[in-house]
Design a protein around this nucleic acid. Structure first.
Lengths: 189, 189
DNA sequence: GTCTATAGCCCGATAGAC
DNA sequence: GTCTATCGGGCTATAGAC
């Protein structure tokens, strides 16, 4: 296990603060206090507050893009692909509780990397929608508005970070299995 | 139709700006510019920036509380109650696109009203969960972790404000019907 | 690698003229 | 009801000592 660098520690602590109050409401003095140093000392390790946000958001967004590519290249059925996507979100959210909050809530405060982030997100949603559309065409899925299916699944999966910390007794496998039931098979008898 | 007061206009424009960048990143100068006046002039109509946030969030939260009370007092089956809740969220989100963003993302910036908001939200979730638990006991719903069911439904419904503006061709009834299919009956054949 | 001090700017809010 | 002017303070970031 690689030792965490001071820079990595700053980014980890920043992500936690960003989750609580949002990027704009967290000051460099807040972050420094949480680190036990003075604000000026942060700049020995990072270039700017904006750079911290970039690092948090882009790394996770690229992780999702990579995961989606693996799912697409597989020869699985549509429903199996959707289950893989559920597992991907559970895995990333479990490992990046704090970062997921920034990804969801603070992406609009990106500056130089905003367009890159938006292109990653748009492509992800396009690929997700395409899997659902293929499932409807092949009669694996019901004929419901595919965008509503994607919206419902994706908002649930994107919000996992809010909910995972409250349910520590569920491991990733149990959580993914329960979500598959609810999201794919419905809740009524 | 009652004429909109200047104060109501300020709150409406503020909610729109809060949706784009979040409460903390919107300045009174931003708001004034959007209103076509100077920042100092805002204070002839409102007491503080914080008061604007209070008004936006608490009014919607109380609307949800009131709607949930009506559902609970009804003698409907569990599934019919859930459909009523879906309709409630579609209705409120359609009428308060911008306010819903503040409710979801900026509630933690409430000051004097924070505890009141949290009590409304906690009671809402408790009531929601109770309906689901009764549905499982009466065998209307599958035996899946009831909190996962609630989490999935509620995150989807709370995020409607993101998605409704992109799908203007769907009216509230169609949207509620499609959501009922996806959330309650599942997506697979 | 952390500190003190501070530059340069922006913040919410108020006073008082019109 | 809107304006100009401004207060008192907080913001990100830098300079330079240790």
């Amino acid at each position: 296990m690689k030792q965490e660098t001071r820079k990595e520690e700053i980014i980890r602590v920043a992500a936690k603060l960003f989750k609580e109050k949002g990027y704009s409401a967290v000051t460099m003095r807040d972050l420094a206090t949480a680190m036990g140093i003075k604000a000026a000392s942060l700049y020995n390790h990072i270039n700017s507050k904006q750079d911290i946000l970039n690092t948090i958001i882009i790394s996770i967004a690229e992780e999702f893009t990579q995961g989606m590519k693996l799912v697409q290249d597989s020869k699985l059925s549509c429903i199996e692909k959707l289950k893989q996507i559920v597992a991907l979100h559970v895995k990333i959210a479990s490992e990046n509780i704090y970062g997921m909050a920034s990804l969801n809530n603070d992406w609009m405060h990106l500056e130089t990397q905003l367009n890159y982030y938006l292109s990653l997100r748009n492509n992800y949603e396009k690929d997700f929608l395409s899997i659902i559309q293929q499932g409807i065409e092949s009669s694996e899925l019901k004929e419901v508005n595919p965008e509503i299916i994607m919206f419902s699944m994706l908002t649930t999966l994107r919000s996992l970070y809010i909910w995972i910390p409250k349910k520590e007794e569920l491991n990733a496998n149990d959580l993914a299995n329960n979500l598959n039931k609810v999201l794919i098979h419905g809740i009524n008898i």
